[in-house]
């Protein structure tokens, strides 16, 4: 067991956890932040993507104990919550463009989408629909056929 301290969605958290605890398990079981999902065990589906120190990472393939002092952002941290709380433009875009059906892959899609928009803007690159599709290599959706996910990210890119 090891004590780990990190900042999750702006709040300091700590836990005394077995060393083999994955970040996804720490979020879901210890912090009960169940918006981060587990869709595979070979780190390919991307339903578990969160941001660590500003970068998207697969939380199912990261040990929580290795993240002492890290800043973690999950789907729950994109909006402050409560009635009438403003949603992140990416969350709004997924609703506006019907970018989700069953919703299971959606948290990972949104966290991945936010990163790609930020990164392309920072680098001054054009986030074309082809680029979005390539960037989604590590995120699998079984419902939408990606059409409306790509549209959602394109739309959010104009509003972020």
């Amino acid at each position: 067991m090891t004590t780990v301290n990190m900042t999750v969605n702006g709040k300091a958290v700590s836990g005394n956890i077995p060393d083999n605890t994955l970040l996804s398990e720490f979020l879901r079981e210890n912090l009960r932040l169940t918006g981060t999902h587990i869709g595979c065990d070979t780190s390919q589906c991307g339903a578990c993507v969160v941001h660590i120190n500003g970068m998207p990472v697969k939380s199912c393939s990261t040990l929580a104990v290795s993240l002492d002092g890290a800043e973690v952002l999950t789907i729950e941290g994109l909006t402050k919550g409560g009635k009438d709380a403003e949603l992140h433009p990416m969350q709004v875009a997924f609703n506006d463009n019907h970018g989700l059906q069953c919703g299971f892959c959606t948290p990972g899609m949104i966290m991945t989408g936010i990163d790609m928009v930020k990164r392309y803007k920072a680098e001054g690159k054009d986030l074309t629909s082809d680029a979005i599709r390539a960037e989604l290599e590590g995120n699998i959706c079984r419902c939408t056929g990606y059409h409306n996910i790509v549209k959602s990210i394109e739309d959010a890119a104009t509003k972020m």
Binding site: Q44, V49, V57, K58, T62, E135, E137, G138
Partner: peptide, 9 residues
């Protein structure tokens, strides 16, 4: 290599 999230780690 891999995908963006994998490349970050």
């Amino acid at each position: 290599i891999g995908d963006p999230a994998v490349r970050n780690v």
